[in-house]
């Protein structure tokens, strides 16, 4: 089976299975206990997928286009009848019904309720909060400033420590550098590890490290650093993959070693984008650091969560103002520096 055929059938299978499972839930109305039987429910979903794959193949055999066809069959094989409006096609209805059902399920799942939004008690609570926030208590300003300085340095250290690691990793994760069988294994391994690391949010890393080294800025810094290493290594290595081959050949031809070739032919081509990415990362890290403080990463975030817990909205207002100003300043400064580097 060609790869686009596989993608087409998989897509259709998942869409049909979704409809099948939703229909099943609506008809049988399972209780809490039944919903928690993960093993059995997964099997039902998989069964739905098999059924869906069959339906998709049947449509294909009859020459009827499904949504998977429209999405994944390459253009040159796919003659779309442009004159037919979507509501006269199977794939159009397939997509419309799937979207509609998904939307309906989402509304049920999020307990969406206009009534809650317009509830008078709740609304007054929100008003009190806003009143507090828009009337900040400037007495906590000195503490807020001290805390945000801690946050900025936490972000700075995380970025600075991530640079050398990401720098080395960026070459080991670049396809054009890692040629040859052994190199390819290292490349694949490192890429996988970095992808997994990056897919775990900094917030989760902060939770892990706050247990490991205790609540405080050190835990937050470590979390940001791990996340920065993974993100920077990816961005850096993409840069390395786009360098021009000419200088590399030029240096190789002199009898230079691999290390010399990287240093003299690749590095000069990437320093500016590297600096640019790094400045941007610091900017992102300051923003993330405030969030990370919420789960015990120290700095302004920790301060914010303490006042929020006591419903001291006027103090929260002051903190929000400080955060907004610093984030805005960092954003402007980093944009300015990156512009100058072009």
């Amino acid at each position: 089976m060609t790869s686009f055929n596989f993608k087409r059938v998989t897509f259709d299978a998942v869409v049909f299975s979704l409809l099948f499972v939703v229909a099943l839930v609506v008809i049988t109305k399972p209780d809490e206990e039944a919903m928690l039987m993960l093993g059995r429910n997964s099997l039902v979903f998989l069964g739905g997928c098999v059924l869906g794959a069959l339906v998709s193949s049947l449509f294909a055999a009859w020459g009827i286009k499904t949504a998977g066809d429209v999405l994944f069959t390459p253009r040159h094989l796919n003659k779309l009848e442009t004159a037919v409006p979507w509501y006269k096609t199977v794939w159009g209805w397939q997509m419309a019904v799937a979207l509609g059902v998904t939307f309906a399920v989402a509304i049920v799942k999020t307990n969406f309720s206009i009534w809650e939004l317009t509830d008078i008690d709740g609304f007054q609570g929100a008003m009190r909060l806003f009143k507090g926030i828009f009337n900040p208590n400037w007495e906590v300003l000195p503490a807020a400033v001290n805390n945000i300085i801690e946050t900025i340095f936490m972000a700075f250290l995380a970025t600075a420590l991530a640079i050398p690691l990401a720098f080395v990793l960026s070459f080991l994760c670049a396809k054009n550098i890692m040629k040859g069988p052994v190199s390819f294994i290292v490349y694949t391994l490192l890429r996988t590890v970095l992808n997994v690391t990056r897919s775990v949010e900094a917030l989760i890393w902060a939770i892990i490290f706050s247990v490991w080294v205790g609540i405080g800025p050190f835990a937050g810094m470590l979390a940001l650093m791990i996340h920065s290493v993974a993100s920077l290594a990816k961005q850096y290595s993409e840069m390395v993959e786009t360098v021009s081959e000419g200088p590399i050949e030029g240096i190789q031809a002199t009898g230079a070693t691999k290390l010399q070739t990287i240093w003299f032919a690749v590095v000069p081509q990437i320093v500016l984008p590297y600096i640019s990415f790094t400045v941007y990362r610091w900017d992102i890290n300051v923003r993330m650091a405030t969030i990370i403080g919420l789960v015990g990463g120290g700095g302004i975030g920790t301060m914010l969560i303490q006042y929020q817990g006591q419903a001291m909205w006027r103090e929260v207002g002051c903190i929000i103002v400080v955060i907004a100003i610093v984030v805005w300043l960092m954003d402007a400064a980093s944009a300015y520096i990156r512009e100058a580097l072009k």
Partner: peptide
Amino acid sequence: FQHFNLIPRH
């Protein structure tokens, strides 16, 4: 080489 292949920034 045809395109010289020097290191531009050096």
